[in-house]
């Protein structure tokens, strides 16, 4: 099956991004496709390459980047939500891209299931 994932909360502050990641990983391991992850609201903060967690903690941003690198998961950051919060091309981590809200609607149309993670 083809999955679309929506992440509405920032990393570290809320568990949503962790749950979304572990769900995506499990889906891929089961042979499904995670077609797109759309980052909205504070979820756009998952894409900042300036993120530096303590060494003994998980690196949430890099984990998403790796999912893009290894499985081609399309990581889309909402432009309007991103600009509001100071996320721009120049501080975008590897594998993420900034685009419009239409990409979220498109994910709803083109995937078999859309799963939302937020607060």
């Amino acid at each position: 099956m083809k999955f679309g994932i929506v992440v509405n909360e920032g990393p570290y502050q809320h568990q949503a991004s962790d749950t979304a990641y572990l769900f995506s990983k499990a889906a891929i391991e089961k042979g499904h496709e995670v077609w797109r992850v759309f980052f909205y609201h504070d979820g756009v903060n998952n894409s900042s390459k300036l993120t530096e967690p303590p060494q003994d903690d998980r690196h949430i941003v890099n984990r998403w980047s790796k999912l893009n690198e290894e499985h081609g998961v399309d990581l889309v950051v909402c432009v309007a939500a991103a600009l509001r919060r100071g996320i721009k091309e120049e501080n975008l981590a590897k594998g993420f891209r900034i685009s419009g809200l239409g990409q979220l609607t498109e994910a709803g149309i083109k995937t078999d299931r859309l799963v939302v993670f937020g607060d």
């Binding site: 099956m1 999955f3 769900f23 499990a26 889906a27 089961k30 499904h32 299931r113 799963v115």
Partner: peptide, 10 residues
């Protein structure tokens, strides 16, 4: 587990 979560969505 997370795999079961995925299963429920399918």
């Amino acid at each position: 587990d997370y795999s079961g979560f995925v299963e429920l969505t399918t």
